[in-house]
């Protein structure tokens, strides 16, 4: 459903991805691991249509998305993808509830309806008590669960997560991973997680190990 074929991406002299090919199936949970600087985040951004590779193709549902213009890629992202980053992706000025409702409102859903849906997602992730708090008032684990709710609220087909537990201790990290993978399996959402934590990788169906911008090995759990 999602594939990268012969992808090259360089930042100036740094060649982050060197002819990389991966394929990810519908409903699959994939962990991308590898040493620091091996190109994990870059791959994620390319797959999600945030960055454009110099050569190679990115396909989603068989359709090339790397050749699309900025506006068209943005539309693909908002209709099909959700993203979770390491930390800091919540808008600090909005409450947790408003943060989760925001993607729905950007998709032209009414305010009341969006808030109701957002609240049900906060409940599902066990952070409904934080609805009125701002990100600055949340703990790291709570903030990440709110971020997961924000990524899932529009019912995306693919969720991309870049070190979603990187800033958390192991207990809080496990909780976030439980919720993320649990919900993904329930709704058959494809999940691509970048991590350097073996315990996180253990949640995945498959592990893709990167080294120097190419796939070093693929391990099926």
């Amino acid at each position: 459903m999602l594939e990268a074929r012969g992808v090259h991406k360089a930042f100036g002299p740094t060649r982050a991805l060197r002819g990389l090919t991966v394929e990810i199936g519908e409903g699959e949970i994939v962990a991308v691991t590898g040493p620091s600087g091996s190109g994990k985040s870059t791959l994620l951004h390319c797959l999600a249509g945030i960055l454009r590779p110099e050569t190679g193709e990115i396909r989603f549902d068989g359709r090339r998305i790397d050749s699309l213009g900025d506006a068209a890629r943005t539309t693909v992202r908002r209709e099909n993808f959700g993203v979770v980053f390491q930390f800091g992706q919540l808008v600090p000025e909005l409450s947790a509830l408003e943060n989760v409702a925001l993607p729905l409102m950007f998709n032209r859903h009414g305010r009341e309806e969006s808030m109701l849906t957002a609240r049900s997602w906060l409940e599902r992730l066990g952070v409904e008590d934080c609805a009125g708090l701002r990100p600055g008032e949340l703990s790291g684990g709570q903030a990440q669960r709110v971020a997961v709710a924000r990524a899932l609220v529009t019912g995306p087909r693919v969720v991309f997560a870049d070190e979603p537990t990187g800033a958390l201790d192991s207990l809080a990290g496990e909780r976030v991973m439980d919720e993320l993978t649990g919900t993904a399996r329930e709704s058959r959402t494809t999940l691509v997680i970048v991590t350097h934590d073996n315990r996180v990788a253990a949640y995945a169906d498959r592990e893709i190990v990167l080294r120097d911008g190419t796939v070093a090995s693929a391990v099926t759990a």
């Binding site: 999600a48 992202r77 993203v83 993607p103």
Partner: peptide
């Protein structure tokens, strides 16, 4: 800039 960048990454158009 971080909020804007993460909103843009999740598919909010620059026009919005």
């Amino acid at each position: 800039r971080r909020s804007f960048a993460s909103l843009a990454a999740s598919g909010v158009p620059i026009a919005s």
